[in-house]
Amino acid sequence: MEPTPEPSDGTVVRAVLTGDVEQYAVLVRRYKDRYARYASRMLGSVDAAEDAVQDALIRAYERLPQCRDPEKFAGWFFLILRNRCFAERRRDRRSNGLDQVGEMAASEGSHASLERKEQARSLEQALLQLTPEQREVFVLKHVEELSYDEIAARVGTGVAALKMRMHRAYDRLRELLGEPQ
């Protein structure tokens, strides 16, 4: 017996819009973790990322009739989550989660793991000092490993502007992390 193929995003979105609300759980399971790393690096903590992803999923449901291309739900949802992350960073810079960064490496105990944990902590702390735009381009390029073209398509900003942001992000990170210029 062949496994039943997973329904496409478009199929699920259309089912939800025609009244099968329970189908939305498919999208929740599909995207709950996909952008969790992006959100946690943007907001500085897993807890904050969890709140942001949850809010974004609820907001996406509320706005689902406005999703013009249901097959591209992923990109549309990412923009909702991105707006949520930016709004939070701008609204309350005190919630940067500096004291929570360590939980990203929770349950790791080896020396090497602890070293990585410290490295992640220092980078997270430095990233929190960047503007949301600089921080985002750094996270998408180096943590999510997207190309500049992919980032441009995702966030709707030109490649040249993204490279300028990255250039400034590097300068600021070198300064914050003590690397010689």
Binding site: E22, V28, R29, R37, R41, V46, E124, H142, R174, L177
Partner: peptide
């Protein structure tokens, strides 16, 4: 920058959120 590479590697670790998110989102939905 070379000095950032180990830190970026560390930051690339997968992040999983609580499985309870699904129940909370669906309750709201």
């Amino acid at each position: 920058p070379p000095a950032l590479r180990p830190e970026v590697e560390a930051a690339r670790r997968h992040v999983s959120l609580s499985p309870e998110i699904e129940a909370r989102v669906m309750a709201a939905v």
